[in-house]
């Protein structure tokens, strides 16, 4: 079965940043500056098929006829991924363009935290959407569909699960390949050596899936943890993420949910 596209690679998945984290984000710095709260957690070597490549895709504009630039940053080593840099010179002011980078690779193994940085030659850039696109050659075996949640910079000492009054994601598991399961990856800390909990609930908080409970390694230190694979119920369901602390105060910087063909 041929699943190749014109470039010989299939884009799947796209690690979208939720647009409410991005929309209207203004950048005026002429040197690269971090886009706060825009981060991803993944293992570029082991989460995808061998030979995986990446692209950045961005919808943006500039207040003048200037140049916007975007680059991926490996935050674990504080190094910009130079091959990921993508720029757009705007022929018209305040006119939206969608821009893709060239393919680039990431070579660091282990779950790492990636961020984004942007700059302008002049004027003000307005960023409306950013995607990190993943291109895997060959079949879609082992495809991971990754998407971030908007859970960012939340702290709580509540020992009961916090309720969120709006959904985090819609999933119709019936439309995914059979044997697709979910997992949660989270970047968080605890003020003490307490236990952090995160669980995926349905929209009404009536059912829970895939609880991840982790006793932190170092009080006050951020760490990345990942749940086991867990199954989701049949049909279209709206889900939300809920947290609680087993002691101390937990702070959650980033969280991702992945759908994986296992």
């Amino acid at each position: 079965m041929a699943l190749m596209n014109k470039t010989g690679r299939v884009c799947s998945p796209t690690m979208d940043y939720f647009l409410n984290n991005v929309n209207g984000l203004g950048v005026t710095a002429t040197g690269y500056t971090g886009l706060s709260s825009l981060r991803l957690l993944f293992d570029a070597v082991n989460d995808f098929n061998p030979g995986v490549k990446f692209k950045l895709c961005v919808i943006w504009k500039n207040s003048g006829t200037n140049t916007n630039s975007l680059i991926l940053r490996d935050e674990m080593s504080s190094v910009n991924v130079t091959a990921s840099e993508t720029s757009q010179t705007f022929a018209s002011a305040d006119t939206e363009e969608v821009t893709e980078s060239d393919f680039f690779t990431l070579s660091n193994s282990g779950i790492r935290r990636y961020g984004l940085q942007a700059k302008v030659s002049a004027g003000t850039a307005t960023i409306l959407s950013i995607s990190v696109k993943v291109y895997q050659a060959g079949s879609l075996k082992g495809t991971i569909l990754v998407f971030t949640t908007p859970i960012l910079n939340i702290s709580t000492s509540a020992t009961n699960y916090l309720t969120r009054n709006w959904s985090d994601t819609l999933i119709n598991i019936d439309k995914f390949p059979t044997r697709t399961k979910a997992r949660i990856t989270v970047f968080w800390r605890n003020s003490t050596l307490g236990t952090n909990y995160v669980t995926l609930f349905d929209q009404f908080g009536a059912a829970e899936y895939g609880e991840l409970a982790v006793a932190v390694d170092t009080a006050g230190g951020y760490q990345i943890d990942r749940s086991d694979f867990f199954e989701l119920p049949e049909g279209l369901t709206s889900y939300m993420i809920r947290f609680k602390a087993g002691g101390g105060t937990i702070s959650i910087a980033n969280l991702m949910i992945e759908l994986v063909l296992v």
Partner: peptide, 22 residues
Amino acid sequence: MTIQNTLGLKVIDKKSCMYPKT
């Protein structure tokens, strides 16, 4: 390897637009 589901559709990418928005 069987990667079909029962609905005759298979998701190969998922793009999100997050609100809440009124």
